[in-house]
Design a protein around this nucleic acid. Structure first.
Lengths: 161, 161
DNA sequence: ACTAGGTGTTTTACTCGTGAAGGAGTGTGG
DNA sequence: CCACACTCCTTCACGAGTAAAACACCTAGT
């Protein structure tokens, strides 16, 4: 039995009449996220890059072109203030540029620099390998099934909030 | 297609030759954890209780008796310093007591007060209902299968560290 | 008994996130 | 045209987390 299974056992002893089934999913999702975040951080620490800075570079890289801070904020499920700080730091490190849009001068166009792009092109595949290794215990079919089931839970939540 | 599916599409356009399958699982796990944490927080905000304080009370409640700070730290995957701060606040609010152990005076025995216990006995079932609602899109079989698959990924990680 | 080393908790100094207020820019109805 | 409402981004004040050092205590070898 895994850690979450033992936790559920403990709860069952305390609350024998409660339906504790949701723990099996939600508890594991939260714990798995915490652990994968830790692993992610270990790799990035060596590169003097925080996980959230990595997220910014990733969002820019996969968008293919420039993004505005408000778009980045939406992608990252965090506050606008956090985005400003991350961008300031990434700009100082020469990984991105910020330029005010000509058509609407409230808007900022955030873009990867040459250097920023080369960093993310190096780091992203390495992170992907790391993630693939975590899924080694699953067969390809199981991995696909797991992805489907997660999508089924996630889809309505993303619509709602 | 859900948000993570669209993100994978974007990556595929940028890196057509990379195996992006891990995103389907890891990306969804992380996003789902972030969203469920947000929901959790909403409920707790009304009660002037932070999510991490709730985690402390939960760990104590399901343990059935007293725990030491180091045990709580392990349960919560966070630093010892964080545990100290949370316990200080919970003690001030009258939800727990801290007493130094007699046999080994380095150790602290953390226990729920009457009040702390009544708070968690009220809040925990409510959170469980909330979590059950999130899993409504799944049949019972799907929920069970999802739990199993997550356990399969989680078990080796928990052993490792 | 003394001390060297180990363990359990707290303190310190710092980073990073947040909500709310602020500043700058756009645009619309009178 | 101009004031008012709205949007986008940033700044501010603060709360919470962390790593590392400090502190308190125990224990085993001499």
């Amino acid at each position: 039995m895994d850690v979450v299974g033992r936790i559920r056992e403990q709860w069952r002893e305390q609350y024998p009449d409660l339906d504790l089934a949701p723990i099996e999913v939600i508890g594991r999702v939260r714990r798995l996220a915490a652990l994968t975040n830790q692993r992610h951080d270990e790799v990035l620490d060596d590169l003097r890059l925080s996980r959230m800075e990595f997220e910014v570079l990733s969002a820019l890289r996969r968008a293919g072109g420039g993004l505005r801070p408000s778009q980045l904020t939406r992608e990252m499920l965090s506050s606008g203030a956090a985005t400003t700080k991350r961008l300031a730091r990434l700009e100082e490190d020469g990984l991105i540029t910020r330029s005010t849009s000509v058509r609407d001068r409230r808007e900022i166009d955030v873009r990867l620099t040459e250097h920023g792009r080369s960093v993310i092109d190096r780091v992203f595949p390495a992170q992907l390998d790391r993630e693939r290794a975590l899924l080694d215990p699953l067969t390809d079919d199981e991995r696909a099934r797991l992805g489907e089931l997660l999508a089924k839970v996630l889809a309505p939540m993303d619509l709602a909030g």
